[in-house]
Design a protein around this nucleic acid. Sequence first.
DNA 1: TGTCGAGTTCGATGATTGTCGAAACCGAAG
DNA 2: CTTCGGTTTCGACAATCATCGAACTCGACA
Lengths: 120, 120
Amino acid sequence: MSKPARALDVIDLNADGCCAPMTQSRIPSEAAGTLAQAFKALGDPIRLQLMSMIASAPGGEICVCDLTPAFEISGPTISHHLKVLKESGLVTAERRASWVYYRAQPALMRQLSGLLDPRA
Amino acid sequence: MSKPARALDVIDLNADGCCAPMTQSRIPSEAAGTLAQAFKALGDPIRLQLMSMIASAPGGEICVCDLTPAFEISGPTISHHLKVLKESGLVTAERRASWVYYRAQPALMRQLSGLLDPRA
DNA sequence: TGTCGAGTTCGATGATTGTCGAAACCGAAG
DNA sequence: CTTCGGTTTCGACAATCATCGAACTCGACA
């Protein structure tokens, strides 16, 4: 196969012909599934807060050990939400020693932003 | 100057303590629920396409009778998706004669856009 | 008044999701 | 090699969701 079928990224979305703001033209059905997956990942209060903590983390990354105690829910559930964010392409994870660090993917965030507002 | 005093929806969400881009600060848990509901509404391929058709409609509005035939799914299901979009605050509906017209709410769209990208 | 068409609501059903505890995994430190 | 703490995976369960057909509501019109 010519493509590694990774999580979504900007290049794939451009290939789908989808970058124009939705105020300007209809989103093609082929791109809608991929884009909806990213919006869906943000469509949970816990995940939205996780995403904001990751995106606003000083140094651009944050340890799971700093995310988990910030919520009332269990560790496995936090891990599940992080997996959803990762599979949507909004974050990446890297293990260093015993700890796992998450990092935002600003290109996709800008992609979604631009979809919602022409001025993005 | 005291406050920029933008559109009403933006100010309302400011009252929730939420307007700063998520790359800048963590989204407060009180605001996360409302914002996540809007993202969740966009987290379905059909609804994302519906939203883009509404937002890009000439004249700013579009009839349900123009939306329904654009998809393979039944009328009741289209109606259900439009209801979800309406309850999230992303669209409004107005009945005129026999037809119902949907219209986008650009203030909330800009709100979500600005959350994802500081430059929005 | 009665009928017709556009759209919504209702009720049901199969699929997906959020959550947890238990277990497994993976480096690091004894 | 064994233990330990951080993180993920597994298995289960209740709740939510997308979808449909049937029934209903609302205007228009004859």
